[in-house]
């Protein structure tokens, strides 16, 4: 956990989170979610679909967005929403970096809230996922 943010400031960047999901992690995701498209674990099936290798599931990438925001937020609040728009496939074993920044800080219903823009960057520096999150302080 990082230090608690005392204020939600527009323009504040959250710490980057870099992960490198391997096949074992993807298979554990499939088991936890009970979803088993072969393209996630069978390289021949993935190549038959025109992919260079097995893919990192979109919901796993959404979870990395969530994780990056939650680790930044610490115990100061909770993540109300996280969204992902998937732009490019990411291949298992490749490094992904989640970046984000606060774009709006406001008070609503007596609560301190903030909206963040997020992105997942691949090893080439391309954005594979565009994301959004909304957080609320306790």
């Amino acid at each position: 956990m990082t230090a608690l943010p005392l204020q939600l400031r527009e323009g504040e960047e959250i710490p980057a989170l870099t992960v490198r999901p391997d096949l074992g992690q993807v298979i554990r995701f499939c088991a936890a979610s009970w979803v088993f498209p072969p393209i996630f674990y069978d390289v021949e099936a993935a190549r038959a679909q025109g992919m260079p290798g097995t893919l990192i599931p979109g919901p796993l990438k959404l979870g990395f967005l969530y994780r990056a925001v939650e680790e930044w937020l610490g115990d100061a609040g909770f993540v109300r929403q996280v969204r992902a728009a998937h732009r490019r496939p990411d291949v298992t074993g490749s490094a992904l970096t989640v970046r984000g920044r606060v774009v709006r800080a406001y008070e609503e219903s007596g609560r301190q809230r903030a909206d963040l823009e997020l992105a997942v960057e691949n090893e080439a520096g391309e954005t594979s996922v565009r994301g959004y999150a909304s957080v609320e302080l306790y």
């Binding site: 936890a32 009970w34 979803v35 959404l62 109300r80 969204r83």
Partner: peptide
């Protein structure tokens, strides 16, 4: 992720052979 796996899905026919998940979200 684990909770949604417990939901019983409807059988939506796949009208075309290929599929991509283009977006997803979690709200609390």
């Amino acid at each position: 992720v684990a909770l949604e796996a417990e939901a019983e899905p409807l059988d939506v026919p796949q009208l075309l052979p290929d599929g991509l998940m283009i977006s997803n979200e979690m709200t609390f």
